[in-house]
Amino acid sequence: MSSQHPGVASNRSCRRRAVLRKASVPFALLAGAVVLGGCKVPTFGAFRGATTQGHAEFKLWVGLFIAGLIVAIIVWALILWAAAAYRRKRPDQMPSQFHANIPLEIIYTVVPVIIVAVIFYFTVVTENQVDAVSRHPAERVHVLAYRWGWRFTYENGQGRPQGVTIQTTAPPRALALPATSSQYPQLVLPEGQTVRIVLDSNDVIHELYVPAFNFGRFAQPGHTNVFDFTTTRTGVFRGQCAEFCGLYHSEMLFSVRVVPPATFGQWLTTEQQRQAKQGATS
């Protein structure tokens, strides 16, 4: 980055340049974090994201968090320094009555504009990655949210029903169990493949929220939301309705199980047969 400026100019412009140099640190770190791919950096409390979309969000989070923390620390330091250093020492102490400094004010208008422009750029890039939908998803799942449960209907990549529906069966209880409990439905997804989710609701607004995917989206009556999950690792993840939907909102749980594609195929066939038999008998 910028080289040193050995003792030049007046004290004043030197200080100003120091301010600028300080301000460039967040960008360096931000850029660094994004280039590194974010895999080596700490998570700052967040999930790394078990989908490609969620991981893109995670990288943005790390960059923004570092930039935000640096800005916060600089401003906090200035506030506390001013508060500590300029305490009244004598009751009759009379400070100089300066009240403006136009060049300084311009600097601290322009610098935030630049910061904003940079983070806006990274935001738009990430947002496009997260919201992109593939033309040829491997699988489609129609998710219906309702008070108080979920229904996952499997369709193939072309949207043809595959005869598999997973649904909340028990009525809401007074107390929530672990999300992975068999009380709640489980969405099974193939690892490494892109699955299209088609989401809506038939009563009030709900939100399909999978913390480990760093993703939530409203399920709304009258408006269908469409997005992709491209999972990156196997595992079981908890999910929950995040938008308040009435009395048993806290009980509206589900889980997501990501399995290797082969296992997914087996699971789908077994479920097809089981559900077909069930349909025949009932």
């Binding site: 967040a46 999930f47 969620g54 893109a56 969000e57 943005l60 989070w61 923004l64 968090f65 935000g68 983070i119 935001t123 990430t126 947002e127 997260v130 939100e207 929220y209 913390p211 760093n214 993703f215 939530g216 989206r217 995040a242 938008e243 308040f244």
Partner: peptide
């Protein structure tokens, strides 16, 4: 500012 970024809001909204 974090929340004004839509991807981060997707992860943390509500």
């Amino acid at each position: 500012i974090f929340l004004a970024s839509p991807p981060i809001d997707f992860a943390t909204h509500d």
